[in-house]
Every structure is written in structure tokens, then in C-alpha cells.
Design a protein around this nucleic acid. Structure first.
Lengths: 343, 343
DNA sequence: AACGATATTTTACGCGCGTAAATTTTATAT
DNA sequence: ATATAAAATTTACGCGCGTAAAATATCGTT
């Protein structure tokens, strides 16, 4: 008799023998009703699988239980990975995550902001596209919806920022590479979409200065999010004309490094930290596949778990405070150097 | 004067000078109102950025404009890629996609089915976990919600299935490898989670039989979705004991192949189709990174675009027909052999 | 047994919109 | 100008639930 033809809370309340407002209270917070009542309700829930109408609930509640998550490019496993952590965390808190990807397109990012706005979420975790983002649009959104930025910061927007400390990434790789061999040349995109790239460049400059070493750059052209292809094409060009300033390459991120390694293999250039190898390659992010490149990639790892946890925690603090925090905190997590075979 | 303090359709209708039902009609279908009226409304929409309350809309409409998308593991770029195609297609049709990942967990898959059920979507595109899925739960869901399966089929469930023709994948790779060198040994997981894996195995057997060649298998242990790691560990073991039946390896999918290539590099085994190489490695899927492996991976490519388009089209046909199709179509798209350097 | 503190019920209203039917206005053609 | 069809309006009702206030019931306590 698992007849699920119960149409509304009224009917369900009738069956349980309890008033509708009490049922409503139960679904809002199961702990808020008497123990015996709770058992009666949960018993009935097993027999008849009634669930309140989400739309009717959210129409009347000031605060929904939705949490929006926006990432710039979900086909990038880095974002897929961090989104995975965040989703699980939100689910475990009894909220409903809604995941969106801008697919690298600022117009889609705006569309997502619009639909998210009308979802009236309790809060939003936003990793913006960065340079390509419509800043004013995002600002307006943050004004109306409790939002926390993560991964890539935009000065002053959102109630807080949670991400990784780019200086911590670069300083560790630069220090390690300089100490164990020739100083690194920085390999990056000329016009990176992501603001983190600029911070990494500056960190590289600062670190090389501190070590009293000469900073060298290779800047490759290319737009969009096909970093591997951009890195590969750029590396092929440079390597063919034998124009490397030093035989140690530090890529701005792992996806560029994947392209770089691909180019090296293509040209028969052996990469690694052993004596037989011609060049060393290191990078940043600990991309899920950096362990499986050939050779495996020496890199600086994000603390995925901490970034995700802290972002979610901060968001819930924000929600509890009613949508505003006294001062905009910028929380940065340190990187962890992961030594593999490429450098 | 972009005051967006318009609270409801009533107010907005007042401002435009048109009755509320007409406004309602406009938002349902902009073409259904008179041209002059439409212009008046759209003019007002620019000044005051009013948008109808989604929850109130969906509470009353029988059919929402939501489309659910469920994939088994979004951190797998293959699914991220196909989800990307599907999302764009749905957006262009004026519907709202909601993307969910089961994260490899059957319990999460069930939770998603529950929340999706209460979203009352117009339709759902479901790529199930496969072996681990709760079949009865999915069956019940398909009974209540217009659902189309994609990528991985479960016999009889959903109103249709859209995916790739595994035989087309394997027959092409096997034919190519056999013709140009020693016949391939099939490399796979002993207990694959995905039903496609079994079809590929059977296709391999059938194809080898047809070519009158001996079928050889390497089956590695491992559970879950960390295919690269599983492939790597399995390959290391086999390669160390020099136990390859033939010097040509055909991996069930690209992620296993990525692990296999990683193992080869670790052991200094050169992979490729030139004379210097010891073994050849090929695979299936045209994973987004298969172009950047070392060496680049010879593989059979999904027709991502066609699978995504056809799945969405079929879903909309299903929606128009009211949730049921006469007979359950199983549409399979052929693979395209992509010759790169690994075989 | 009487008390106060919770828990529950009753009552009543509102949320923002969909939708159907009957009526009136507008546009198009004759 | 008149007939006709299409579009818009008016009217009226319903959706399923949240929520506030006042009344009542239940509980453990003294």
C-alpha cells in the first residue's frame, strides 16, 4: 500500500492525525516537534512517500535551502574536483547544491547569475571567469545575493574570498628548483584569463629577486580555456628554435605543463631530474592528471579539501549573519610541494 | 531609474498598462501576444528588471521548463565534455538545465533522483552509474518522470537510449591494429562499473574471432572511478613480470590507457608505432586529454556532438508526446578512428 | 493536584502566479 | 462602414504551503 497519491500537506496531516502546521514545522526542522509526534510522522512517511512541494515551500519561505555554485569551466578537472568537494559538503549540511558552469563564456556567466538570482538561494559560491567577467554584473549580483568568491578573487566583490596563496605555490617551486639545479624560466600565457596567473607571475619575479637570480619568461599566445593546446603549440615553437633561457621550466599551471610535456615528447626531448634528462619541468595546481603525465609532474598542490570546506563554512556563517560580514576576509591556503619525476 | 522593487506581476502589469494575464501569457510564450503589446512589455523590462517568481510559476504550471541531467562522475572529463554539449543545447531551446553528478556513489544517485523528482522537470537525461545503480529505484523514477538514458544503457529503462556503438569502436581499433602489426591484447578492469566495458569486451572477442585471431586479455583489479590509477598499477605489475601476450595493447578506455602509458614511461618502455618502440597502445573514447599523452593516444572517438544533440532532440520529442514513446528506441552513433602516435 | 513551560491546534491570512470562461477591444478584410 | 477573427481584459478561482496569534492540550515538576 505504498500509494503515493497524497497531494498536499493537508491530506498527509489528516492521515497522520496531526495538524498541518505541525507537519510544516517538522519539515522545517525535525527536532522542533515532540519526539512522539516526530515518530508518528516518520512512520507515516515510510508508508506513504509524501514530500512537500518544493515550489510552494520556496515561494513562501524567505530563505530557501539552495546553494548555488558557479565555476568558470567545468570541463577543467581542477574545477570538477573542487566542485565535488563543495557539493558533498553542502549535501551533508542538508542543503541543495546547484552546480553551474560558465563554459568559459561571459554571456553564460551572466545568464547563470540571472537564473540563480531567481532561485533565491540562501547563498552562492562563485568562482568567476576572471578577466572576461562582467564586473558590474557580478557586483550587482553580490549586492543582492549573499555571495562568497573562491579560487579567483575580484577586488572587493563578494562578502569574502577563499582561495589558494599563489605566492606560497610559486615560492616553493622556485626555491626547490633553484636549490636543486638551474634557476627556472617562467612559462605562461601572455594574456591569461585567470587573475591567479598574474599573481603567480609577480610571485615568481619577487622570489627570483629575493634569491638574487635573473627572472626569465616565455610568454605564449592564445585565448580561451584550451590551455594544454596553447601550452603545446607555444612549447613546440620555442623548443624548435632552441630558445630556452635555462633548462628548467616552471609552468604557471599544470594544464600548460601537460601541453609542454607533450611537445617535449614529440620532439624527443627527455624531461626529468635525472642526469640523462635535458630539461626539468615543474608546475602548479596538482591537477588530477599531473600524477599520470610522462614523466609525472612535480607541482605545488592546492589544499582542495581545506579550500572547499572553508568556503562552505564561511558561506554558512554569512547566511547566519543575515547576508553581510563585518569585514571582507580573504583567506588563502598554502600549497604543498609534490616532488615527482619531472623536476 | 532602474528600480527593481517590483514585487509581482500585478505591479508590473500596472506599470506597463496591460492586464496581468496578458503579461503571464507573454512570459509563457512571447509570440503569443500582439506585436505592439510585446514591444511595450519588453521596453518596460529594460527599465525595470522584473522577472516572474520561478517558484510561483512552477507551482501552478503542470510542466516546468527544467531539464535534469545526471552523470555518474563529473570529475571524469568525458562526462564534463558531454554535459557541456547537452547544457548548451538545452539553453538554446529556452529551457533550464540542472546538472547533477552522482560522484560515483549510488546513494547520491538516489538522492539526486529524489530531488529531481520534486523539481518536476519536463524531462531528464540520465547517464546511470551502471552496475552499482539501484535498478528498481531508477525504474520507479522513469515511470514517473519522462527520462531518456544516455551513454550507458540499462535494458528497458527510460523511454529511449542514446549512446555510442561500442562495436563500432572496438571493431575499428582491432581491425587497424591487426592490419598494421601484431594483434591486440585487450586491457581492462576485471569488474568494470560501466556496462559499456562489457560490450567492448564482447566486441573484441567477436572481432578477433571474425579475423581468426587469438583473443588475449589482461584484466586488472580495482574498484571505483580512479581508472588512471587502476590502469597504472595493473600495468606496472604486468610489465614488470614481462607477461604481455602480444606487444600491442588495446585498452578498454582512454583513462585506463593514460595509466598504462604512465606505467610504460616509468619503466622506460617506449610506446609508439615506429620501429624503435617496443609496444603499441590504443584505446577508446577520445578523452579530452588523449591528444596530450606521451605519446599521443591512438583512439576511437565518440561523436560527442551527435550523441548530445540526438539525446536532447529525443527528449523534446518525448516531452511533446506527453511523456511516452511508442517503442523504446536505442540509437547508437559510430566511432571515428583517430590515429595518433601511440599505435 | 495544581502549576508553569512546551507543544500543538485552530484560525486566518498571504505568497505570486496559472488558468478558464465570458466579455470587450482591436486589427484586418470586405 | 461593417462583419469577422484575433487579441486583450475582467472576473474568479485555485495551487500548496508559510506563518502569525490566540486558544488549547500535554508534559514534567513541586
Amino acid at each position: 500500500m505504498d500509494i503515493d497519491d497524497i497531494k498536499n500537506m493537508e491530506e498527509f496531516a489528516h492521515i497522520v492525525g496531526i495538524s498541518r502546521p505541525t507537519i510544516s514545522k517538522y519539515f522545517n526542522d525535525a527536532e522542533s516537534v515532540r519526539q512522539t509526534t516526530r515518530l508518528k510522522i516518520e512512520e507515516a512517511l515510510k508508508k506513504y512517500n509524501y514530500r512537500p512541494n518544493i515550489y510552494a515551500i520556496n515561494q513562501n519561505r524567505k530563505l530557501t535551502k539552495n546553494i548555488g555554485i558557479i565555476v568558470p569551466f567545468l570541463a577543467d578537472p581542477f574545477f570538477a574536483e573542487i566542485a565535488r568537494f563543495i557539493e558533498r559538503r553542502i549535501l551533508s549540511l542538508g542543503f541543495t547544491p546547484s552546480l553551474f558552469s560558465a563554459h568559459g563564456d561571459p554571456e553564460i556567466e551572466k545568464t547563470i547569475l540571472d537564473t540563480l538570482r531567481s532561485l533565491r538561494p540562501a547563498g552562492v559560491l562563485l568562482a568567476p571567469l576572471g578577466r572576461a567577467s562582467d564586473k558590474r554584473y557580478i557586483k550587482d549580483f553580490c549586492r543582492d545575493v549573499p555571495t562568497i568568491l573562491f579560487d579567483s578573487n575580484i577586488e572587493g566583490m563578494g562578502e569574502a574570498f577563499v582561495g589558494s596563496d599563489n605566492y606560497s605555490f610559486v615560492s616553493q617551486t622556485v626555491e626547490y628548483l633553484s636549490r636543486t639545479g638551474t634557476p627556472p624560466t617562467f612559462f605562461e600565457m601572455r594574456n591569461p584569463a585567470n587573475p591567479n596567473a598574474n599573481k603567480r607571475r609577480n610571485s615568481y619575479i619577487a622570489m627570483m629577486e629575493k634569491l638574487e637570480l635573473e627572472a626569465n619568461f616565455i610568454q605564449v599566445d592564445g585565448n580561451g580555456w584550451a590551455f594544454e593546446e596553447i601550452g603545446r603549440a607555444g612549447a613546440l615553437e620555442i623548443l624548435k628554435q632552441d630558445a630556452l633561457p635555462t633548462n628548467t621550466i616552471l609552468c604557471s599551471n599544470d594544464r600548460l605543463a601537460i601541453g609542454f610535456l607533450s611537445a617535449c615528447h614529440k620532439l624527443g626531448i627527455q624531461v626529468g631530474r635525472d642526469e640523462n634528462s635535458e630539461i626539468r619541468v615543474a608546475s602548479h595546481d596538482d591537477h588530477p592528471y599531473s600524477k599520470f603525465t610522462c614523466p609525472s609532474l612535480t607541482t605545488a598542490a592546492h589544499d582542495y579539501e581545506s579550500v572547499a570546506s572553508y568556503a562552505v563554512e564561511t558561506l554558512f556563517k554569512l547566511i547566519e549573519e543575515g547576508g553581510h560580514l563585518k569585514n571582507r576576509e580573504e583567506k588563502l591556503f598554502s600549497a604543498r610541494l609534490i616532488m615527482r619525476d619531472s623536476a
